[in-house]
Nucleic acid binder design. Structure first.
Lengths: 181, 181
DNA sequence: AGCAGGCGGTCAATGGTTTTACGATCGGGG
DNA sequence: CCCCGATCGTAAAACCATTGACCGCCTGCT
């Protein structure tokens, strides 16, 4: 009987599907790397779930898209920066930053001035109102992050963060990785 | 002097920014949950990087979007399913599945028939060509997953998968989580 | 100084996803 | 038996992000 392809859809949801997918695939395609597959599947699905949850409960109600939040947060942490760098640090394209900047500066959340030394460059920074709004929203954001984190033990959380940090650091040097812009 | 806001942008990239962000935030906003913040930041950034890399080196060249791949893969694993279920299992909206279905069935990769019992429902399934194409693409996909996985040790990988699995399972029952559609 | 090549930001076009609304269908209660 | 509400898939519209082309500016070389 086993949990074959059809049948038990009752307990199968977006997150638990990863288990089934790995088992099925390993069976049907011998030679694939099972753990690697599991890692990517889980990372993607867990991250997506968290982002969806945060966006729909915290950021959309506040009138921001997930990207807008990331942009503002990046500025809040890194301080005034060239548009190019903000794009890089927040993980979006230069065009996306340019477009978001128009909206957010119209709302008075960020300011945009051109660099004196290099007149091509635009320097973005938060306004006082922007910093204020970000801090308020971030608190709500962090409270919800804490709920997610509480689903595992403190030790497990520390372990998770440790391994993810190592993975992120190791990825930094790799030439073969295709990166944004 | 420490690594304050401006200055050392040299070694700061998308992935390593997480460290700086956590430190800066913890300093400026006492009372936030540091580990929870780190977890979400890392999960999002690592997952994004992997997805971007896979999409741009494997799926786009094959003519598929990341979502198209996920849809086909879901069908390949789960077998013929109602459109509704496919959306749920692959983590997208019903509308997105409907839209993708049009494209993919035009390419002859998947078939769409209506359920006999419930004539509202549409049942999606892979064609032979679709299954073939998926298996070929998936091998390339998995090879690249393996490169990512090789950035950490086998033990660490097993640990990572263990914790992520636990997190995914724990999330399953939670009522407070906002889920897609 | 002048020019060639490269880089930063923006615009237009494109593709894909979500939201909203709707027609068709199912199922249960009066 | 017939509504009524709920569900399924889809179409239309809005939104958002990416790619590619472009213009202006910087820099190094001659």
């Amino acid at each position: 009987m086993g949990h074959s392809a059809d049948g038990d859809s009752a307990a199968t949801d977006f997150l638990s599907f990863a288990d089934i997918a790995v088992d099925t695939t390993a069976e049907r395609l011998p030679g694939i790397d099972r753990s690697a597959m599991q890692m990517v599947l889980l990372l993607h699905r867990v991250a997506s779930s968290i982002v969806y949850d945060l966006e729909s409960t915290v950021h959309r109600p506040a009138g921001w898209s997930w990207s807008a939040f990331r942009l503002l947060f990046t500025l809040w942490v890194a301080g005034p920066r060239e548009s190019r760098q903000v794009a890089h640090l927040s993980g979006m394209s230069r065009a996306a930053v340019s477009s978001l900047t128009k909206t957010l500066s119209a709302s008075g959340l960020l300011a945009r001035r051109s660099d004196e030394r290099d007149r091509r460059a635009a320097i973005l920074s938060l306004t006082a109102r922007g910093a204020d709004a970000l801090e308020t929203t971030f608190r709500a954001h962090n409270e919800r992050e804490a709920r997610w984190a509480s689903l595992i033990s403190e030790d497990e959380l520390a372990t998770l963060n440790g391994v993810l940090t190592k993975l992120a650091r190791a990825a930094q040097g790799q030439e073969w990785i295709s990166r944004r812009a």
